[in-house]
Amino acid sequence: MPNIIPQEEILNLAVVNFRAVWGQKQRNLARIISYIRAAARRGADIVCFPELALTGYENQTGVPKEEKMQVQLAEPVSGPAVAAVAKVCRQMEIYAVFGMPERDEDRPDTIYNTAVACGPQGYIGRYRKIHPAMAESCWCDRGSDPFSFETPWGKIAVGICYDTYSFHEILRYHAATGAKVYLNPTAMAEAPHFDWKTCYYEGLRQAVIANDFFVASSNLVGYDIVDEDFCNQTDALLEPDSPGRQFCRPFCPRPDPAYFTGASMVLGPGIGPDKVHVYCGDIDLCEPELLIATVDLSVGSRMIFNRNPFSGRPDYRPDIYKKLNELLLEDPYWGEQ
C-alpha cells in the first residue's frame, strides 16, 4: 500500500507591521530580508509584507509619471530585489510575499503595483494589482490576472488592498478554486473624513465570513513621506483642539503627511461563539512588529463551495454570475473596459 502523506493543515502564518522609508529601496530591502530571517527563526512558514514595502507608498502630487519615485525605482521581477528575496527564502526554507513597483520587461514604460511570491524553491510568481486605488493610477497600470501559488498547505491566494475591501469577486474566485489562505498586502492610511478602522477591520471580517478562509493582512505603519527628516517625530502630540486629534498619529511638522495605521493581523474562522477569530494582531497596533499565528486550516470549511447535502450541488452559482456580468458588458459603459 503506498505511503500517502496528507496535505498539511497546521500553518505558522506571519504578517509584518512594516515601516517603509520612502524612496529608500536598498534600506527597505535589507529590512525585508532581516524580517524574513527573523520570521523563519521563529518558525513561520509564510510571511506577508505590505503593499509597496520595497519603496514606500506616498504619491508625489504634481510630478510627471516618469519622474515619480515608484516609476524611478521600479524593476522587473528578474531584477536584484526579487533575486535577493528569493535567495533568502531558499536559504531559510520559507515563503514570503512582498509589495513592489514592477517594471514590465517587455514594455519598460508600463509599471504595475505588484506583490511578489518567493519560497524554498526561489521565485514563484507575481500578482499585479487589478484595481489600483485613487492616485496609484497616476503611476501604475491595471493588472488583469488573479494569482495564487501552491504550498504544502494547499493553494495560497494573493490580492492587494483595494482588491480585498471593495472587489469581493477576487476573493470569491480564490475561495471557489480551493484556497484556504488569502494574503492581503495593504497600504491603509488615515485620512480626513475616512473611517479606516471600519473599512479595514470589517472588510477583513467580511472576507472571512463570506469565504470561510483565513486572511493574513500586512500593513505599512508610520509616516511615509518624501522628506525623511520628518519621519520619526514622536516627541510631541497634537494640541487638544487640533482637528487631527482624532487620529492616532504622533505630531509631524509637515502638512498632511501620509500616516499608515499598521493593524496587521491574521483572521480566520472561529469554532466558538465568534464567527471570526483574530489569531494575532490588533486594530490598534501601530508600531513596527512581526506577528506570527499558528492556524488550523481544517477549521475553514468553505461551506458555500461544497455540495449542499440537501440539493447535492454547491450553493455557489458561477453560471449565474457569469450571466449577470455578460449582461453588464452589453452596456457600452462597461464594454469599453
Results as ranks from 00 to 15, higher is better:
residue 290 L to G: 05
residue 292 I to F: 05
residue 258 A to H: 15
residue 290 L to S: 03
residue 276 V to M: 06
residue 268 G to W: 13
residue 278 V to Q: 10
residue 252 C to H: 14
residue 284 D to S: 02
residue 261 T to P: 02
residue 285 L to T: 08
residue 269 P to E: 06
residue 278 V to R: 08
residue 302 R to S: 01
residue 297 L to W: 04
residue 278 V to S: 01
residue 261 T to L: 13
residue 279 Y to N: 01
residue 269 P to S: 05
residue 267 L to A: 10
residue 252 C to Y: 14
residue 295 V to N: 06
residue 285 L to P: 04
residue 283 I to C: 04
residue 285 L to S: 13
residue 259 Y to C: 07
residue 269 P to D: 07
residue 282 D to A: 14
residue 280 C to N: 05
residue 290 L to P: 04
residue 265 M to V: 14
residue 261 T to S: 13
residue 294 T to P: 00
residue 258 A to V: 11
residue 282 D to W: 09
residue 252 C to I: 13
residue 288 P to V: 04
residue 275 K to V: 08
residue 286 C to H: 07
residue 273 P to H: 07
residue 252 C to W: 14
residue 268 G to R: 12
residue 269 P to I: 07
residue 301 S to V: 06
residue 285 L to W: 03
residue 302 R to M: 03
residue 264 S to P: 13
residue 291 L to H: 05
residue 288 P to C: 03
residue 263 A to Q: 08
residue 254 R to W: 14
residue 257 P to H: 12
residue 267 L to S: 05
residue 264 S to I: 14
residue 260 F to Y: 15
residue 258 A to C: 14
residue 275 K to W: 03
residue 257 P to M: 13
residue 262 G to M: 12
residue 292 I to D: 07
residue 285 L to A: 10
residue 278 V to K: 02
residue 278 V to W: 00
residue 292 I to R: 07
residue 275 K to Q: 08
residue 290 L to R: 06
residue 283 I to T: 08
residue 258 A to N: 14
residue 267 L to W: 07
residue 297 L to Y: 02
residue 257 P to L: 11
residue 271 I to K: 03
residue 302 R to T: 00
residue 267 L to T: 05
residue 286 C to V: 06
residue 302 R to E: 00
residue 281 G to Q: 00
residue 278 V to I: 12
residue 284 D to E: 04
residue 296 D to P: 02
residue 253 P to E: 15
residue 292 I to L: 06
residue 252 C to V: 14
residue 256 D to T: 14
residue 293 A to N: 02
residue 252 C to D: 15
residue 259 Y to F: 15
residue 290 L to M: 11
residue 284 D to F: 02
residue 273 P to G: 00
residue 293 A to T: 09
residue 297 L to T: 01
residue 286 C to K: 04
residue 294 T to W: 02
residue 271 I to C: 02
residue 275 K to I: 07
residue 260 F to V: 12
residue 286 C to D: 10
residue 300 G to E: 04
residue 259 Y to L: 05
residue 294 T to Q: 12
residue 265 M to Y: 08
residue 285 L to N: 13
residue 255 P to L: 12
residue 263 A to N: 09
residue 269 P to A: 03
residue 267 L to G: 05
residue 294 T to C: 09
residue 291 L to M: 12
residue 265 M to E: 14
residue 271 I to R: 03
residue 287 E to W: 06
residue 278 V to Y: 01
residue 289 E to M: 06
residue 279 Y to M: 01
residue 257 P to F: 12
residue 289 E to Y: 01
residue 271 I to E: 09
residue 267 L to F: 10
residue 265 M to D: 09
residue 255 P to A: 12
residue 295 V to I: 15
residue 290 L to Q: 06
residue 266 V to E: 08
residue 290 L to K: 05
residue 266 V to C: 07
residue 267 L to Q: 09
